[in-house]
């Protein structure tokens, strides 16, 4: 399979991390950092799921919704793309309670990152749906399908494969942005690293391990998305059908 080198990379990265950690006597850092890594993974997965849902809802509303719905979708996309993820995170965490809505830090993290990446994802979805040839829509009209049937059965299945690689980028972007959640009291990988660094001052070792952890998770995401693309393309038997 085409992504075998990536699998090898992922394994090597993990092994390298573990070797460095064990041989240099960093065993003491590992449990804490792994704990942080799990939180990071949790936020990445939760945020990604939310981002995909937001992106599809926003993109389809923007493309086919009645004007009030379309307006809301445009506002959502522009606000979340046009402002900093850190500010969004702080806003949800520090400003919302002023209006009587207090959320768990982890909920805030997933919500902020999911909404942020979802806004970028909406444009990915829109691009892929627009790229489905017009002839496919015309065929659905000629077969008397409703717009919803056409979208669900004909257009979206064809748009899914080309949108997988850009989604891979967004998920990795989301992973990296999770480092911000350490600023709202969540003990993620970055938070744990800072905490340990503050008490031990072994900066080189700690941040090297953290670097390898982030890289390993990113490579895992890439491998997963490549596999998904491979299976989706095979399942859809895409070909020059015009």
């Amino acid at each position: 399979m085409a992504h075998r080198p990536l699998v090898v990379c992922a394994i090597l990265a993990f092994t390298a991390g573990l070797v460095i950690a064990s041989f240099a006597g960093f065993r003491e850092f590992l449990p804490g950092l792994l704990e942080g890594a799990l939180v990071t993974i949790e936020i990445t997965v939760g945020g990604s799921v939310l981002a995909v849902i937001c992106a599809f809802v926003a993109a389809l509303s923007k493309m086919y919704g009645a004007w009030p719905v379309r307006g809301l979708a445009v506002i959502y996309i522009e606000v979340f793309r046009g402002t900093s993820a850190l500010v969004q995170l702080f806003w949800l965490f520090f400003v919302l309670p002023r209006f009587g809505i207090t959320l768990e830090p982890l909920t805030v993290a997933i919500l902020a990152l999911g909404l942020n990446v979802g806004a970028y994802g909406a444009e990915v979805v829109r691009g892929a749906v627009s790229a489905v040839p017009r002839g496919q829509w015309e065929a659905t009209v000629a077969l008397n399908m409703s717009r919803f049937q056409a979208l669900r059965r004909i257009v979206l299945p064809q748009a899914l494969v080309p949108m997988i690689p850009p989604w891979g980028n967004l998920f990795i972007e989301l992973l990296k942005t999770t480092a911000l959640v350490s600023l709202i009291t969540i003990s993620d990988l970055a938070f744990k690293a800072q905490e340990m660094n503050a008490t031990t001052y072994r900066t080189v070792e700690i941040f090297s391990i953290v670097l390898v952890f982030y890289l390993a998770i990113a490579v895992l995401i890439t491998v997963a998305m490549r596999s998904l693309e491979w299976f989706a393309a095979r399942g859809l038997a895409r070909g020059p059908a015009q």
Binding site: P133, G135, Q136, E138, A139, A142, L143, N144, M145, S146, Q149, R153, I154, P157, Q158, G235, L236, A237, R238, G239, A241, Q242
Partner: peptide, 26 residues
């Protein structure tokens, strides 16, 4: 019913599925 110059078949469906899709859904 209409037949197009460029066929406009659904590339992700077999010949049979192409013919079954609209009769089922519509």
């Amino acid at each position: 019913g209409m037949v197009f110059q460029h066929f406009n078949l659904f590339p992700h469906m077999s010949a049979l599925k192409n013919c079954m899709e609209a009769p089922c859904t519509v």
